[in-house]
C-alpha cells in the first residue's frame, strides 16, 4: 500500500505540491491526469525518494520514504519507475540493460538475471531484440525495454511518468498495450498520463491534479462522465 499524507513540495519559490493526500491499495491502478505544471510528475519522483519533500509523509508498505533511517536503495527495488525520456543505457545491449540492476543491485547470478530478463522482454514483445543496442530501437521499443528493465527487479509497485509523451503517435499504442497487460495481471500502478482513453479504460480510479492540488478523484466513469469540480470539467473539455 502507498500512503501519501499531506505532502508539500516546492522548487525554490515555486510550490509544486500543496498538500496531497492519496492512498493506493495493492492491486489498484490509479491514473493521474492534469495540465502541465500541476505537480503530477513530481509526485511520482517523490514516492520513490528521487526528490525530497518539504513536509508531510509518504509510506510504502508502512516504510516512510523520506525518513533518515530508510535505505532508499533497498526501498526502490520495490518501486519500479518508467520515465517520459526512455533513459536506455546506450552502452549496453537490450539484455544487458535489463540484467544490469538485478545483477549489480540484487547480486543475482548472470544466468538467473538473464532468465528473468528474457521472460520480461518476451512479455513486452522484445524477445527478438536481446543483443541489439538501444540506438537501433524505435522509441516505443525503447520505452517497452525500460518497462521490462523496471519489471526485472520484481517490484511491487510501478510508477509511470507520462511514458507515451515523447513517442510518435503511431508508437503510443504498443506501449499502452503493455501497460494494460500489466494492469490485467494485477500490478499496482500509478500512471501519470495524457492518454484519457487509457485512463478511462484501465484505471480503478482517476485523480485530477490542478496547480499542486488534487482537485478531484474518483472512478473513471464519474470523472469522465460527471465531474464535480469545475476545473476538472474545463480540463477534460480542453483535451477532448
Amino acid at each position: 500500500m502507498i500512503e501519501i499524507e499531506n505532502v508539500h513540495k516546492s522548487f525554490g519559490a515555486l510550490k509544486v505540491l500543496k498538500g496531497i493526500d492519496l492512498t493506493v491499495a495493492k492491486g489498484e491502478v490509479v491514473s493521474v491526469i492534469g495540465g502541465s505544471g500541476s505537480g503530477k510528475s513530481t509526485l511520482l519522483t517523490c514516492i520513490n525518494g528521487l526528490e525530497p519533500i518539504d513536509s508531510g509523509r509518504i509510506l510504502v508498505d508502512g516504510t516512510e520514504v523520506h525518513a533518515k533511517s530508510t535505505d532508499l536503495n533497498k526501498l526502490r527495488r520495490k518501486i519500479g519507475i518508467v520515465f517520459q525520456q526512455f533513459n536506455a543505457f546506450p552502452h549496453l545491449t537490450v539484455l544487458e540493460n535489463v540484467t544490469l540492476a538485478p545483477r549489480k543491485v540484487k547480486g543475482m547470478s548472470k544466468s538467473d538475471a538473464e532468465e528473468i530478463a528474457v521472460k520480461h522482454l518476451n512479455h513486452v514483445g522484445l524477445g527478438d531484440k536481446l543483443k541489439v543496442y538501444p540506438s537501433r530501437l524505435s522509441g516505443g521499443q525503447q520505452q517497452r525495454m525500460a518497462i521490462a528493465r523496471a519489471l526485472a527487479m520484481s517490484p511491487d509497485y510501478m510508477l509511470f511518468d507520462e511514458v507515451t509523451s515523447a513517442l510518435d503517435p503511431q508508437l503510443v499504442g504498443e506501449v499502452l498495450d503493455t501497460l494494460k497487460l500489466l494492469a490485467d495481471e494485477g500490478m499496482t500502478m500509478i500512471c501519470v498520463t495524457h492518454e484519457m482513453g487509457f485512463a478511462r479504460d484501465v484505471s480503478n480510479r482517476v485523480a485530477f491534479f490542478d496547480q499542486g492540488v488534487m482537485a478531484e478523484i474518483g472512478p473513471p466513469e464519474q470523472i469522465f462522465g460527471d465531474a464535480k469540480n469545475e476545473a476538472t470539467r474545463k480540463f477534460l473539455s480542453s483535451v477532448r
Partner: peptide
C-alpha cells in the same frame, strides 16, 4: 551524458557510486 541517466540508475536501486 544526460542527468536522467543517473536518475534511471538510482530508480533501479543503485547508490550514487554504483
Amino acid at each position: 551524458i544526460p542527468a536522467t541517466q543517473i536518475r534511471a540508475g538510482r530508480s533501479l536501486g543503485m547508490g550514487p557510486a554504483k
